[in-house]
Amino acid sequence: MNEPLPETWEDVARKHGRKIYNFAYRLCGNPDDAADLVQEVLLRVRRGLADYTPGSFDGWLWRITRNAFLDDVRRRKRRPTSPLPDHTDRMSEWSSPGPDEVLAGLRLGEDIQKALLDIPIEFREAVVMCDVVGMSYEEIAAAVAAPIGTVRSRIHRGRKLLRERLT
């Protein structure tokens, strides 16, 4: 699957920044770390673009993203994660739900985020790639350099663990 190479680094940022941010936020659970990761990924992309060989640009980008996240995890000292309420920008576009519903949704979102942070990282990563980013099993397998069967197993086990934590 050859994809056209984005012309500029800014194109990559514009097209993929939000995807990377959502992936990072759901993995790390806080906006500051997620923002740091986005910048790190884009820095690596900028360094790597010159040597990029045509192929799956998205696959290349997600491998960089994942590697940056894992490098970051290894580098950091333990520090508490404190997920903030999810941004309400999108919700404000829709006036139907009342304040109570919005608050209930935010609380549920926090519960789900906490449950995500509580499961082993390889399962969390697979679930987030599948259910937040919307990647196929094949795309996830390419990004994490694992067989599709492994991806399937990680998603399955991740969901089972999430289910246990959410009930």
Partner: peptide, 22 residues
Amino acid sequence: YGAVSSNEGAFTVVKVAGATAA
């Protein structure tokens, strides 16, 4: 960031062509 898997071997960094700085 959360629970560490006992299977750390699953988390070797993937080689990324063209991103040697990774």
